[in-house]
């Protein structure tokens, strides 16, 4: 009788733990899009001065990023009209590979500048978290290649 009561109690405890787990997960609050800077400030405990520095870095990086976007779209459009094995196609693919390297290098420099604006520990954590999320398309086919 005592053993049965103990088993029932243990099962009840497990059930309550699981119910609390799934109920809490269901009430996850989603962040609105465009809120990345606020997330950055909260996640990496940025001071107002650090936030101001990072906003300036983002503003300086925006034109570089826009230019890269433009060149990516340009090469995509060109590759969409070229044959895979043609000389122009090969040249375009080489340009694409070079552009990917350039984009990655510029993005990494920006990330490192942002990390340098944070405290050392947070900066390392920032790089460890964000760098793996970058697209590295050096070995994949560019979009639109026939």
């Amino acid at each position: 009788m005592k053993n049965r009561r103990a088993i029932i109690l243990i099962l009840l405890a497990i059930a309550s733990g699981l119910a609390a787990f799934f109920a809490t997960r269901a009430f996850r609050v989603s962040n609105p899009s465009g809120d990345e800077m606020r997330w950055l400030a909260d996640e990496f405990a940025l001071t107002p001065e650090q936030v101001a520095v990072i906003r300036k870095l983002e503003a300086d990086y925006a034109p570089v990023c826009a230019e890269h976007c433009r060149r990516i779209n340009e090469i995509r459009a060109r590759l969409a009209t070229l044959e895979n094995n043609s000389p122009d196609g090969e040249a375009a693919r080489a340009q694409w590979a070079e552009l990917v390297r350039e984009c990655n290098a510029a993005t990494m420099r920006h990330l490192e500048s942002v990390a340098a604006a944070m405290s050392p520990g947070q900066g390392r954590r920032y790089l460890a978290l964000v760098v793996p999320k970058l697209a590295r398309h050096e070995h994949t086919h560019p979009f639109g290649l026939k």
Binding site: E36, C65, N73, C103, L129, K133
Partner: peptide, 20 residues
């Protein structure tokens, strides 16, 4: 954290950005 980091990366990585 993982979700927000991926969203943040999409705002700074031109290779992941939507078409112009």
């Amino acid at each position: 954290t993982e979700r927000m980091a991926a969203a943040y990366a999409r705002t700074i990585d031109p290779l992941q950005m939507a078409p112009a």
